[in-house]
Amino acid sequence: MTVITLGPEGTFSHELALRLKCDPVVLEPTIHRIFASVAAGNGDGIVPIENSEAGGVGETLDGLTKYPLSIIAEMYMPVHHNFASLVPLDKIRVIYAHPQTHEQCSTWIERWQVPVIHTSSNASSAIEAKKTPNAGAILSASAAAMYKLPIIAGHIENNPGNTTRFVRIATVPCASNQSGKCSLLIDPDIDRAGLLYDLLGVFATRRINLTRIESRPSKKGMGKYVFFLDYAVNTYTDEALRELREITNIRNLGCYPRIEVPL
């Protein structure tokens, strides 16, 4: 099965696909392009959905809202960032970094007081740093080696336990809905006092554990939001979903297993 993920070569998404021995792997320049390609039937996709330091990945959440796709697996990968450049640190005049990478390394970046230019991926940061005088990039060790950029400072992430959660997306959901985790998109069509309380109460009264809840602008106007929920399956899950449909608009994003990532 073809797997589509974020390129160019050297991104963490690409590294994950290689670790999982996906073949063939197709690289797209943006997460939006990954979703569009999967929706067109060109293969499954692997996208980052949240990071332990920087939180949810907006492009992925927007893609799940826009496209009728399902999550069929999740993967967790430790993420370590490095600063690499062709010149010494005291000569650096600009740093290239992906926005999520910037947030995950904000403490180190603030210490140097150097302007940061955002890029579409860590690999793109390496490419820009190589062609810009007195520039550096924040990227993975494998990307630094791939693009022949010497590492000047290693493991510069704010948290040594920095981890990114990835999901595999597909046009067809998993055959079984008894996997350990499920994801749900809630798109309220009304705004009233107590709505969120009622939504969460559907899970609380059935002792269904919510492992994540996140809001995201619905793109329908100021103050209008959709909610992403992850929850652990129990015997009352189907009953909870039936009650939710009576309260608001929901879309089941799928129930899925966790796949361990080889070191």
Rank of each mutant, 00 (worst) to 15 (best):
residue 1 M to E: 10
residue 1 M to H: 09
residue 5 T to H: 05
residue 5 T to G: 04
residue 8 P to D: 14
residue 8 P to F: 14
residue 9 E to D: 11
residue 13 S to M: 11
residue 16 L to M: 14
residue 17 A to R: 06
residue 19 R to E: 10
residue 25 V to E: 03
residue 26 V to A: 14
residue 26 V to Y: 13
residue 29 P to K: 13
residue 34 I to K: 02
residue 34 I to F: 08
residue 34 I to D: 05
residue 41 G to F: 07
residue 43 G to Y: 01
residue 46 I to A: 03
residue 46 I to H: 03
residue 46 I to R: 02
residue 50 E to A: 04
residue 55 G to V: 07
residue 57 V to A: 03
residue 58 G to K: 11
residue 61 L to D: 01
residue 62 D to I: 09
residue 62 D to N: 09
residue 67 Y to V: 03
residue 67 Y to I: 00
residue 69 L to K: 00
residue 73 A to I: 02
residue 73 A to F: 05
residue 76 Y to E: 15
residue 78 P to Q: 10
residue 82 N to H: 15
residue 87 V to S: 13
residue 89 L to D: 07
residue 90 D to M: 05
residue 92 I to W: 06
residue 93 R to I: 00
residue 94 V to T: 04
residue 99 P to L: 04
residue 101 T to W: 07
residue 102 H to S: 11
residue 107 T to Q: 12
residue 110 E to I: 03
residue 114 V to D: 02
residue 115 P to D: 08
residue 115 P to N: 07
residue 118 H to A: 04
residue 118 H to R: 04
residue 119 T to I: 02
residue 122 N to S: 13
residue 124 S to C: 08
residue 128 E to K: 11
residue 129 A to H: 03
residue 129 A to N: 04
residue 140 S to K: 07
residue 141 A to E: 12
residue 144 A to L: 00
residue 146 M to K: 11
residue 148 K to E: 14
residue 149 L to S: 01
residue 151 I to G: 01
residue 155 H to Q: 13
residue 159 N to F: 11
residue 160 P to K: 07
residue 163 T to F: 04
residue 166 F to T: 00
residue 168 R to I: 02
residue 169 I to D: 01
residue 169 I to N: 02
residue 170 A to R: 03
residue 172 V to T: 15
residue 173 P to C: 04
residue 174 C to A: 14
residue 180 G to M: 10
residue 181 K to G: 03
residue 188 P to K: 07
residue 189 D to S: 14
residue 191 D to N: 11
residue 193 A to F: 12
residue 196 L to R: 07
residue 196 L to V: 15
residue 196 L to E: 11
residue 203 F to H: 04
residue 203 F to Y: 14
residue 210 L to A: 10
residue 211 T to N: 08
residue 213 I to Q: 12
residue 214 E to T: 14
residue 215 S to G: 13
residue 217 P to H: 11
residue 220 K to I: 01
residue 220 K to A: 15
residue 233 V to C: 06
residue 235 T to C: 05
residue 235 T to K: 11
residue 236 Y to E: 11
residue 237 T to D: 04
residue 239 E to N: 09
residue 239 E to V: 05
residue 243 E to M: 01
residue 245 R to S: 13
residue 248 T to C: 06
residue 249 N to L: 10
residue 250 I to M: 05
residue 252 N to S: 09
residue 252 N to C: 09
residue 254 G to Q: 07
residue 254 G to H: 07
residue 258 R to I: 08
residue 259 I to M: 12
residue 261 V to R: 07
residue 262 P to S: 06
